[in-house]
Structure formats: structure tokens, C-alpha cells
Lab assay of single mutants.
Amino acid sequence: DVEPGKFYKGVVTRIEKYGAFINLNEQVRGLLRPRDMISLRLENLNVGDEIIVQAIDVRPEKREIDFKYIP
């Protein structure tokens, strides 16, 4: 289970104008929005990159997770 405030290693699987989709595993995916990136820009991410993200909002009923990147 993903818990708000905890850090997780994930893989960038898709990049859109509104953010990057990060997979923690095959069943768990969330969104990293540009506003939640500190010292990292969306255009510097590539599909396949491994990054450490912090879960900031977890909505299991909608199967949605918002992430934050903190270097």
C-alpha cells in the first residue's frame, strides 16, 4: 500500500504536458505534475528513467496517486 509522505522508487512510463506518469510496480501508477517538481523540469525526464518520488495524495477509491519530486 502506498502511504502519503513516504518515498518510493518509480519508473517514468509516459510524459504529457500536464505531468509524468510514474509506475511503482505493475499495479501502482501515479502522476508527477510540473508544480510538484523541485529542481527538476518535465523536459529533463525521459521514459524509462528511474526516480525517487514522494506520495503526497493517495485516493485508493479512484486509484489515483499524486507524487512530488524532492532531490
Rank of each mutant, 00 (worst) to 15 (best):
I65V: 11
R29P: 02
N25M: 05
I15A: 00
L40R: 06
R35M: 10
E64R: 09
Y69S: 03
R33W: 02
N46M: 14
A55F: 04
E3I: 15
V58T: 08
Y18N: 05
N25G: 11
D57V: 13
I22K: 00
F7G: 03
E3S: 12
Q54L: 15
R35N: 10
I52C: 11
I70S: 11
I56E: 03
K9V: 12
G5Y: 09
G48L: 05
D36I: 02
V11R: 13
E16V: 14
D36H: 13
Y8Q: 01
E26F: 14
D36V: 03
D1H: 15
Y18K: 05
E64C: 07
G19I: 03
V12G: 00
E43H: 12
V28C: 08
I65K: 02
K6A: 09
G10Q: 02
G10K: 00
D57A: 15
D1S: 14
R29H: 10
K62L: 14
I70D: 14
R35T: 10
E26V: 13
I51T: 01
E43A: 13
Q54D: 01
T13M: 09
I38S: 12
V2S: 02
Y18P: 01
Q54R: 07
Y69A: 05
G30E: 01
R41H: 12
K6V: 09
M37D: 03
F67Y: 02
G5I: 03
N23E: 12
G30V: 04
P71N: 08
M37G: 03
L31P: 01
A20M: 03
F7S: 12
P71W: 06
L32Y: 02
V58A: 06
D66Y: 14
E64W: 14
D57F: 12
R41Y: 11
Q27A: 14
R63N: 14
F21I: 12
I70F: 13
N46L: 14
P34L: 11
L45F: 05
V47M: 07
M37P: 02
V53N: 00
Q54G: 05
Y18S: 05
R29F: 12
K62G: 07
D49M: 13
I51D: 00
N44R: 08
L42K: 04
V53A: 02
V58I: 10
V11D: 02
K17G: 10
V11K: 12
F7T: 07
G5V: 03
N25A: 10
R33F: 03
N46K: 15
E61W: 07
F21P: 00
L32T: 01
V53H: 00
R63H: 14
I70Y: 12
V53Q: 00
R35K: 14
E26Q: 14
R35I: 09
Y69L: 05
I56Q: 07
K9S: 10
Y18G: 05
L24S: 01
Y8C: 02
A55Y: 03
I70C: 08
I15W: 03
R14F: 07
V12M: 01
R14V: 08
R41W: 09
R41G: 11
E3F: 13
N44Y: 11
Y18E: 07
Y18C: 05
A55L: 06
R59M: 04
K17C: 09
I65R: 02
R33H: 05
F67I: 03
K68S: 12
A20R: 01
E64P: 03
N25K: 06
S39Q: 14
V11S: 07
N23V: 09
V47L: 13
A55S: 04
E26D: 14
G30K: 02
D57E: 14
G19A: 07
D49F: 06
P71H: 10
V53D: 00
R29Q: 14
F67K: 02
F7P: 05
I15M: 07
D36W: 08
V53R: 00
Y8V: 03
E16W: 11
N25L: 04
Q27W: 15
G19C: 03
F21Y: 14
G48D: 05
R14W: 08
N44G: 09
K6L: 11
T13E: 07
T13F: 07
D49S: 06
K6H: 12
D66F: 13
T13K: 07
Q54N: 04
L31A: 02
I65W: 08
V47S: 04
E50D: 12
L24N: 00
F7A: 05
I51N: 00
D66W: 09
T13P: 00
I70M: 12
L42E: 02
F7Y: 13
P71M: 08
R41D: 10
Q54P: 01
D57R: 15
N25S: 14
A20T: 03
D36F: 08
F7R: 08
I15S: 01
R33C: 03
Q27P: 03
V12F: 01
K6Y: 09
E3G: 06
V11C: 08
S39P: 15
A55Q: 02
E3R: 12
P71I: 07
G19V: 05
A20S: 03
Q27M: 14
F67A: 01
E43L: 08
Y18T: 05
Y8K: 00
E50I: 15
E3A: 11
M37T: 05
D66T: 10
